[in-house]
Structures are given as structure tokens and as C-alpha cells.
Simulated assay, not measured.
Amino acid sequence: MLEGHQVFGFGFLVVGLWHLFNNVKLHALCSKSFTSTLWFPTTKSRYLELYFVMASSTIFISLELFISPARHQPFDPDGTIPTNHLHNFEHSSMAMSFLVYAFFALVLDAKCSKSQHELTHLLGALAFAQEYILIHFHSKNHIGPENQYHYFLQLLILVSIITTLMGIGYPKSFLVSFVRSVNIVFLGVWLIVTGILLYTPGFQSKGCVTHLKEYKVTCSDDKARHRAVALVNIQFSWLLIGITIFAMSFYLVLIRIYGENVEYVSLSKEEYYLEDESNTDIECQKKSIEGKV
């Protein structure tokens, strides 16, 4: 069964890889004038990434509130929220935050707002902060392996919050953008791993079992619980090593592909980019003028 963590994690993984590719590519092509953004346009559609975030968030919300519940709606007959569905509302609220971020990021770009960069990063940081708060103060009292999975998840979200906020003050820092991109990839992978190994029956540590109705994991005794927690620590450590190797290899490959001709970039090409940026500013001004007419 497809679990909510896996859907949410897949979204983060795709966006993280897309950001990593674009940040490294931009750094390779123009390291001196590198400026990162929180989202990147594509050749086919300028807002494809934002559409993807909105679509993924909508699917996740639908999965949590209407598909997963037994009655395909999360309310009791009297209209109240039952205790066993509180976590569905918490999870869907996280997705709503990213839906709001993507929507207003699109609007800010379309309106050519002067504070677009700062406000977009602030919206992104708020979305991550919402995710952190709802996980930290979760309605479920996570214990054992559940607690450990969510503890590491909170660490990854904190890194996302910090690096996103740092992007406001350090927009030209490749390191900040690189760390944020890699961390989003890690966040996506960790959510997928959590969904599979924690909430998919048959993948739990020996001596532990998942109760889907109660949406919790229990272990037979303290020995089994301590073993399960230790395995989570090992999983995180191995994933950290693996993603570090992947990120550095990815960086070196892209630098080799896109950075070979950097030394031969002519002044005319640099002027072209400057002229293109000027034209973009003019177009933005035209849009704003047309919008006022």
C-alpha cells in the first residue's frame, strides 16, 4: 500500500534533485556571478516545478484526508475529528503549507515583485517550520523506532529551515544552496525509508510490528525496542554516507560537463547574460505597467 510518507518523500526527492542539478550547473557556468533561487524554471514551462509542488501537495492532502480513511472522509458522524484521524490533519497541514508556498511563489514571480527573492525564501522557511512544529508536537506519542525516525526527520527539517533563511542573506553563496539541495534530497529519501521500513507491514525490525489501524509500531520487549532504535541510527548513518558520496560525485560530474569551457567564456557572452538580465527586468516592468492599465 502506498503510504503518505512515501508520497511526500518522493516529492522532496524530485525537487531536491532538480535543485541540486540546477545549482551545480549554474555554479559551473558562472561561478563568479552565481545567484541561487528557491525554484527553477524549465524550458517547457517556467512554473513546472511550482506546478509539481502544488500537485504533489494536493495528492498528499487527498491521500491523508479522503483516500486513507476507512470511510474516505476524516470526520465522525457528528462532524468532529476522531482521535485516530488527528495525524491525518497534521500531515495534510504540512502539505498545505507547501501548497501555499508554491502558489505565492508563482504569483510573486508573475507580478515581478521587488521582494520576490526574500518573500519566496520566507514562505519556504515557513513551510519547513510548519512541518517541523507539527512533527515535534505530534498528536501521536512516538516511542522506540518511531521516535528515532522522527527525531532524525526533525534534524533534516531544521537544516532546511536554516539554509532556506540563509538564502535570504546569502543569495550568492553556492555552499548554502548546495547544502540545502542535498538536504532536501536526504529529506525525501528519509521520508520514503520511514514509510517503507516503519509503516509497511513486513519491513519492521525483528520483534516489532506495525498496527495500521492505530498507526503505530510496538515492540515485544525492551531488547527488541533498543535493537530497532540502533538499526535506525545505522540506517541514518549509512544513508548520510551514501548521499554524501552521491552529492560529491554528482557535483564532480556536472562540473566536468559544464565547467570545461568556463575559462574560454568570452566577454561578449558575459555581456549577453547581463543584457538578458536587463531585458528580464524591463519585461517585469512592462508586466507591472500593463497590470496597472
Rank of each mutant, 00 (worst) to 15 (best):
V159C: 08
S33A: 12
E283Y: 15
L106D: 01
M94W: 05
E90I: 07
I196Y: 05
Y215G: 03
S288W: 11
A129Y: 10
V179Q: 00
F40A: 06
H91A: 04
S288K: 15
L50P: 04
E270Q: 12
L156D: 00
T164M: 09
M94D: 01
G124E: 00
E90N: 03
G11H: 04
P69C: 01
L29S: 05
Q73Y: 05
R227N: 06
T43M: 06
S31F: 06
L239F: 12
L267F: 12
P145M: 07
V185C: 14
L86W: 12
S288H: 12
D78L: 00
I257S: 04
G11R: 02
L86Q: 09
I255M: 15
C30E: 06
G169V: 11
K213F: 13
Q204F: 01
S45A: 08
F52S: 00
F128P: 05
Q130W: 10
I143N: 08
L155I: 11
T37Q: 06
A129W: 08
V159Q: 03
H211P: 05
D276E: 15
K25D: 00
S45R: 11
I162Q: 02
T244A: 15
P41Y: 02
N147F: 13
L123I: 09
L156T: 06
H5C: 02
Q130E: 04
I135M: 11
L65N: 01
A70V: 14
A110D: 01
S56C: 10
L165P: 11
Y101A: 02
V265C: 08
E260V: 13
L63C: 03
L13E: 00
Y101M: 07
I59E: 02
I245A: 14
I255E: 04
G202N: 00
L17T: 01
S249F: 14
S93T: 15
F66C: 03
G207R: 07
F137W: 14
W190G: 00
V176R: 03
